[in-house]
Amino acid sequence: MWQMVLDLIKWQLITDTGVDAMVYFAIGGFATTLFVLRLLLMLFVGDDGGDIDLTSADIADATDGMETGAAFNLFSLLSLLAFAMGFGWMGLAGRITWELNPTISLFIALAFGSIMMFGSAFAMMYIRRFEGTNVYDVKTGIGRTGRVYLTVPANASGQGQVEVTVSGRRKIFTAMTKGAELSAFSNVRITEVGDDEVMWIESTETQPSTTTTEAQDAPPA
């Protein structure tokens, strides 16, 4: 069985070509495997490709200028994997199929990998533009639990970020807390949302507070 696989991928030819051909094959194969797994996650789990949705302000920035959107997506997971795939397989083709020398194959692999990366970046940018037209209600996040994405300073002294699902979409929002500092990856609860889409959060270990207004409005015993 193992010998059949080696014969199928022409492993003997790859090893006879040189170490660089083996490296190209390893990079291309590994990147392709990760790329396919990432696409499957996007399709069946609903994850946005490892490139989690940003807030509406970030989406607006991406739609206002080509440079901003491209810069953000250029170094996303999918873009880097696209570069590795293009680099690996084109380098291998240069060495085995076209029988080019190692230097020329390297330059061709770098050029094709870069094209793949930029192509993936632009594709993701336009996908985000399309998604940016979808309406979501940030208020639906109130009462939900999320996860701290970037540490939130204590006593409203600064801003961090929280990852939470709103209107069925997993997004990252600016967050603040009135309590103790909330470290990254800790579980939190959304207590309120400001007009600027800043989410106020508290640790899930804290019991939800009841407002004094409700106590005052309660009828006397």
Rank of each mutant, 00 (worst) to 15 (best):
A154K: 10
G158I: 06
P219R: 04
I9E: 09
A111M: 13
A154S: 12
L13Q: 15
L81G: 05
S114W: 15
F173H: 00
D7V: 03
S186E: 15
I201H: 00
V23C: 05
F122E: 09
P208T: 00
M116V: 12
E214C: 05
G143V: 00
T204C: 07
F118G: 08
W11M: 10
R169E: 14
S186L: 07
W11C: 04
R38V: 14
M176E: 02
F87H: 03
I9A: 10
T165L: 07
T63S: 09
T177W: 01
N134H: 11
I27S: 01
I172G: 00
Q161L: 06
E99C: 09
D195R: 08
D53N: 11
N187R: 15
V164R: 00
A111G: 12
V5I: 14
T133C: 04
S114Y: 14
I172L: 09
L77F: 13
N101L: 09
D196F: 03
W2L: 14
E99S: 14
D20L: 09
M22T: 07
R189K: 15
G91E: 01
D64R: 15
Q216N: 10
G65E: 11
L150K: 15
G146R: 01
I14A: 03
G49I: 05
R38L: 11
S120V: 10
M176T: 02
T145A: 04
V193L: 03
F35M: 12
G28P: 01
